[in-house]
Nucleic acid binder design. Sequence first.
DNA 1: TCTCGAACTCGTCATGGTCC
DNA 2: GGACCATGACGAGTTCGAGA
Length: 311
Amino acid sequence: MPGFGGKQLEMDGSIDDKSEDSPSSSGSSQPQNLSTVVHTITAVPTAIPNQPVQVQSVIQPTQQSVIQAAGQIQTVQVEEDGEGHLVRTDPDIEKRREILSRRPSYRKILNELSSAEAPGIAKIEEDKEEEAAITSIQTTIPSYVQTSAGQTIQIAAANQNELTTQGLQTITMTNAGQGAVTAAAMPAGTTIVQYTQGDGSQQFVTVPVSISPAGEVQAYQIRAPSSLPAGVVMATPTGITSPQQLAEESARKRELRLMKNREAARECRRRKKEYVKCLETRVAVLEQQNKTLIEELKSLKELYCHKAETE
DNA sequence: TCTCGAACTCGTCATGGTCC
DNA sequence: GGACCATGACGAGTTCGAGA
């Protein structure tokens, strides 16, 4: 991570108010403190959550700084905490601390940042669009799926065109010699089949692959319980009774949970990277603004001195 | 070429927040 | 209240560059 100039920039764009919980708690993205005369900080006051404001010219550590946001002038108390961090000490702290104590969402933060001040920065898309993107590279309903054991099984629904998540469907699986879709890696006895329906919606089916030596396959039900997100269905054997089947069922649930969490972790990391990139861009922009303002200040000073000399 | 340590990646678990 | 999601934390594996 390259070092950032200026004062500590909180992830939510606010001035450091010593909140205990911050997305930067891992430390890897903490900006380094560099000594500069003028610090430009973007802050989001609690009264106007989505409106960035700028704190300028915090030259003396302890003083009142003027925050201008959307045409409004606010005055906040700002102090330096000895470690180079600006600390806001006004009465809003309790409220802000309450808000910041909640775990942040990179997506929310980034979307706030992009909508508030940088229209050019792409928002992190909502899940709907992500799902749509995924389904666009999927195929239609496969008749054959390959299990984690390299086994190919045929899914022969009573009416594949009506294989929807509405209501219950019974499908049968039979061994077949053709492969079509590779299933997720699963422990012995289970597999997760991912496919796309004719209407483009993505489906995950957790399927136990306990095919008897005689090739006999029992019937499974595909159901879409309300607890599962759209596009995810569970395949459960009909009439689970034995402890072994219960164990298999819980193993399947666990695998599905792990798979989802794996995906969630990937997404989370991707969002985090995007968020850090966004912050770096903002830092670069603000540094540039800072330079411009310094130059402007210099020229105004010179102009003023020149005028004073001539008078 | 081998070794070592830092950095990075990924999967999993724990936990708090949100939704129904 | 339970299911689900988002994310921090942690450990294991991988990569890469520097030094012997």
